[in-house]
Amino acid sequence: MSIRFQNVTKSFGLNRVLNNVSFEVKTGEILFIIGKSGVGKSVTLKHIVGLLKPDSGSVSIDGTDVTKQSAEQLSEIRLKCGMVFQRPALLDSLTVFENIAFGLKTVQYAVKAGKELEPKELERIVTEKIRLVNLGHELPAILDKKPPELSFGMQKRVSLARTLAPHPSYLLFDEPTTGLDPITTNAINDLILDLSRKLKVTSIVVSHDMSCALKIADRILVLDKGAILALEPASEIRHSRQPLIMEFLKEEFLKGGAPC
């Protein structure tokens, strides 16, 4: 049971972004999707949650073909997938507690859980998720704060806590560390690794950062010109002689072996 792309093709106008792409994500792994800007990395993620439909081919989650589902059925599938956006995408007018509880109050979640959550249970889940993203030392004050009162790094963590609240089986990260300073980048990557292992979820991370991929990925998928250039364990990608992959690896060399 996992995510499978079979012969997926997607074009925007004359631009064919994905060309007959097939791959399978293994249960419990951290898969990094690496590639140049505009190569279709985010497009791939959006196909998983049905935000985009392929022109041909299929995308399945746990054996269900996402491309053939109604809007209602898609809502159920999306509950399995927690999406972490490049920017924290928090609701500024709501408190941290309300932001994290937001997804737990939806009809879809109530149906999944069999009932609406009692306030005490809601509080327990929100507090648990705050601790999971290493913000436990900020409790309880952080619950009443609004996103603009938090640093960018903390907003990213709260956003991750919100994603984790409905217990997704899959975590989809869209460039989670783009534009962040090296300290915050490392902290977010450690968190992705820690959560993936602790919660036994399957994680797909779209990124430009090969250093981070080499550090925390189980496998790395490299997209180029609409096709899969490589899909290999991180330990093998490190020794790749493919020119494009070597260009990405060069960044790590330039850093002088610094951790990502």
Partner: peptide
């Protein structure tokens, strides 16, 4: 101000 943020390393 951040001339390369969000771009791949080659670009």
């Amino acid at each position: 101000d951040e001339p390369t943020a969000g771009l791949d390393p080659i670009t």
